[in-house]
Design a protein around this nucleic acid. Structure first.
Length: 257
DNA sequence: ATGGTTGAATGTCAA
């Protein structure tokens, strides 16, 4: 099984490129974030024609997540399942061939000290509880998506400059590491060490992709039973280039499953 | 140098 994650920065703006990528790569599962569309306006048919089943959790203008799968998706869950944070579409989860898949768009946080940053920290705390309430570490489980945290100095192009800022703040790193105590392994780091491997490059930096001024903030985590079956985990940097790309690109994990 | 780009929506916010 190959399972991938992609922040589309609008599913409608990215649809032609997404269709091409799906045709060329044929992943079994794709988790999409920032679809930025209400459910009744989601381009369902174009994707279903490629043989994918779709589960979506969207809203107007912002956020929005989707799961695409060539195999049936069962036990679909939207959001945290309570009314604590009801107004943003950031989580969709389902079960595919016995594998629990949780796709999240973690809040960006805007700026350290802002209300949005406090919300990001609370959201990460709530997500830890969500995991514990709904899943067990001895189950096959993947958590993937736009995590919006570069967790180590190797995960951003200028760690000294950005350390303490949003996306590379010790409070974010601490909360992420507490989530991972559930029993989750960062699949990309199982196979590849060192700096320079990124998944997001800011639109506003001139030639930022060529200069590799990026961040590794899109992650694929797995419980032990799945992590030991992971034979490869790669970033498709080429998909960040060309006409009308997203500012993120795809991360793909191959599982011997 | 405190900019720059993109998308949703048509103001301006969010990233």
């Amino acid at each position: 099984m190959r399972i991938a994650t992609f922040n589309a920065a609008s599913i409608r703006a990215r649809l032609p490129r997404l269709i091409d990528w799906l045709g060329e790569n044929e992943p079994d599962v794709l988790a999409i974030q920032e679809t930025k569309v209400e459910d009744d306006k989601f381009p369902r048919e174009e994707i279903e024609e490629l043989g994918y089943e779709i589960a979506i959790h969207g809203q107007k203008s912002w956020n929005g997540v989707a799961l695409l799968s060539r195999r049936p998706i069962t036990d679909v869950r939207h959001g945290f399942g309570d009314e604590l944070m009801p107004n943003d579409a950031r989580i969709i989860a389902g079960t595919i061939d016995g594998l629990h898949v949780i796709n999240t768009y973690v809040p960006n946080g805007s700026a350290v000290g802002s209300d949005k940053f406090e919300y990001k920290l609370r959201w990460l705390d709530r997500f830890k509880t969500y995991l514990e309430q709904n899943y067990r570490p001895d189950e096959p489980l993947i958590w993937l998506g736009d995590i919006n945290i570069a967790p180590t100095s190797d995960d951003v192009y200028d760690s000294k400059r950005f350390y303490g800022g949003v996306g590379h703040h010790p409070e974010e790193m601490e909360r992420l590491s507490r989530i991972l105590e559930f029993g989750l392994t960062d699949l990309f780091r199982v196979h590849t060490q060192g700096p320079g491997h990124y998944t997001f490059w800011d639109f506003t930096l001139p030639r930022g992709v060529d200069r590799n001024l990026g961040w590794r903030i899109d992650h694929i985590y797995a419980t032990e039973s799945v992590a030991k079956l992971c034979t490869e985990c790669v970033v498709d940097k080429a998909a960040r280039k060309g006409e009308k790309p997203s500012d993120h690109t795809f991360v793909i994990a191959t599982l011997d499953l």
